[in-house]
Design a binder for these strands. Structure first.
Length: 280
DNA sequence: TGCCAGGTGATCG
DNA sequence: CGATCACATGGC
């Protein structure tokens, strides 16, 4: 089935996208720039783009032009990829994964901007999702450019050049706690050396350790092999696959051996399934 | 009040 | 290396 984009009135209707669940994709913690709006919809911001989106059954409705839907949002939600086929391979001989996909098989890995992903996941460490979202919005308000089109979001996440020059007052207004100095330190490093191109360069940024680096690889460069291990994944690997909770090396090796180049997609299904509480 | 939140960095042995 | 602890902020 091919992705099809039709235009009626002020709405773009995207069909041929299954399996896709907008809500599960957003709730799965890949991006922190979205909010719930009327009629079960979502407002979503990415770079200097924003859209309102509703899912009606197997159809996705967007309040943007067909050009914007085709050029930006369909690729952003990775709608072209055949997730059904990926899922068949992941589920093979793995009943745990089959359950996770039965629960959250509509999740797709969004194609997010590298710099914005770095910022969001530096903020994510030892933090909770509502507060991460609040920090991202305050950061945009403190130093971001105005969005070129008005909407639910007014400001873009600041570029590294701007963030590198944040005053003490500006970074304090973000209320990011000790993560504020990581943001500025990473921005300065990016200004001097360019965006990180390897895992090593990611890990050299202040505030980016193994877990955040993996999230950035997975969500910010769409490297589906990256397998972030956080407290939920450790809990899951312990309960569902029998690993010792501290044996991260073993978990990494297991994920690579079993899920290979799509380990990160497997991680998202497992993470979302575990977070749902269904596994208790 | 005290604990927890999609961890990291510094500092031990 | 592997374990331990501080780190800002806010919600429950």
């Amino acid at each position: 089935m091919r992705v099809q984009i039709d235009h009626t009135k002020n709405l773009v209707k995207v069909t041929g996208i299954q399996p896709f669940q907008l809500a599960d994709t957003l709730y799965s913690g890949q991006s922190f720039r979205w909010k719930e709006i009327e009629n079960g919809g979502f407002a979503i911001a990415a770079g200097n783009h924003q859209v309102k989106a509703w899912q009606k059954g197997r159809r996705l409705e967007l309040d943007c032009s067909p050009e914007e839907a085709r050029r930006f949002w369909a690729p952003y939600f990775d709608l072209k990829a055949d997730y059904a086929e990926l899922q068949e391979n992941l589920k093979k001989d793995d009943p745990v994964m089959a359950d996770a996909i039965a629960f959250g098989g509509g999740i797709r890995i969004m194609r997010q901007d590298l710099w914005e992903t770095m910022v969001m996941f530096i903020l994510s460490q030892n933090n909770n999702i509502p507060r991460i979202q609040g920090c991202v919005e305050r950061l945009a308000e403190a130093g971001g450019e105005r969005m070129s089109e008005p909407g639910a979001f007014t400001f873009v996440i600041p570029e590294p050049e701007r963030l590198a020059e944040f005053s003490a007052e500006e970074i304090a207004s973000v209320r990011a706690g000790y993560r504020g100095k990581y943001l500025i330190g990473t921005a300065r490093r990016v200004c001097e050396r360019g965006l990180p191109e390897t895992r090593e360069e990611l890990l050299a940024c202040p505030g980016i350790g193994p877990k955040v680096a993996s999230c950035i690889e997975l969500f910010g460069r769409h490297d589906l092999a990256a397998f972030p291990i956080d407290v939920w994944v450790m809990r899951l690997m312990n309960r569902l696959y029998g690993f010792d909770e501290r044996n991260q090396k073993g978990m990494q090796a297991f994920a690579e051996a079993r899920f290979g180049e799509f380990a990160g997609l497997a991680q998202q299904y497992l993470f979302y399934y575990m977070r749902s509480g269904l596994t208790d």
